[in-house]
Design a protein around this nucleic acid. Structure first.
Lengths: 108, 108
DNA sequence: GCATCAGTTCGATGATACTGGAAATATCGA
DNA sequence: TCGATATTTCCAGTATCATCGAACTGATGC
């Protein structure tokens, strides 16, 4: 991942509503959720939701697919992984630095 | 990590200069770097740098310590790890989802 | 105490982002 | 084709953020 792309992704996540949307989609997994269900769950106006979904999509964090009348959104996990890798790149000058690089993740 | 804290951290990183500063400090490791050296390396006015450093500090991503006349800044890796954990929390509803949670990191 | 050096705070300006109702677009069933 | 449903686009008003010179603060050495 390159710097501009990382900034785009970070900026997209740096908002209360978009972060909630993204986490909802992360938890929903690959099957995703239709826009209406998201608006319903997070209780926000359709136009605002659409604005935020477009923002996340532009950043590459989520993907859109149509299913009949509904637009289904789902998280693109590869981008998040790329982002994390970018942020910790060359951590501690390349020398071993367990505390940072071997972060415990809820990888179940 | 809680949502407001995550938003703060993401917002802090979602800027060209701050991202560059943070990555510089990540690469510098625990010993960190004095503000002057950062300003020098990234070629930015002292006041602008100070603004960004304060932003990153407020978000908890970096720490400050004084060493004689210099203020040394260093990355706080624990916060980044918390952030990553928060973003991937309950990924795919808790079921195994290798593509997301087992991200390959340059953990050397 | 005074000069000097390292950084921070202040303040005004310009740019960018968020919000949400109304109107437009796309899909479907009859 | 028409009406209903799902969602996006448009728009303008408000709010928040970034910039950087100048003035300020804190630490050091003589």
């Amino acid at each position: 991942m390159k710097s501009p792309q990382a900034i785009e992704a970070l900026g997209a996540l740096a908002n209360e509503h978009r972060l909630a949307i993204y986490r909802l989609l992360v938890q929903a997994g690959p099957e995703g959720r239709p826009a209406g269900a998201i608006a319903d769950k997070l209780d926000m106006p359709a136009s605002s939701l659409s604005f935020h979904l477009a923002h996340l999509t532009r950043a590459g964090l989520i993907e859109q697919r149509r299913e009949s009348r509904s637009l289904i959104y789902s998280a693109d996990f590869a981008v998040m992984n790329g982002l994390v890798g970018f942020l910790t790149e060359n951590c501690c000058g390349g020398s071993a630095c367990a505390p940072a690089a071997s972060a415990k993740r809820k990888a179940s």
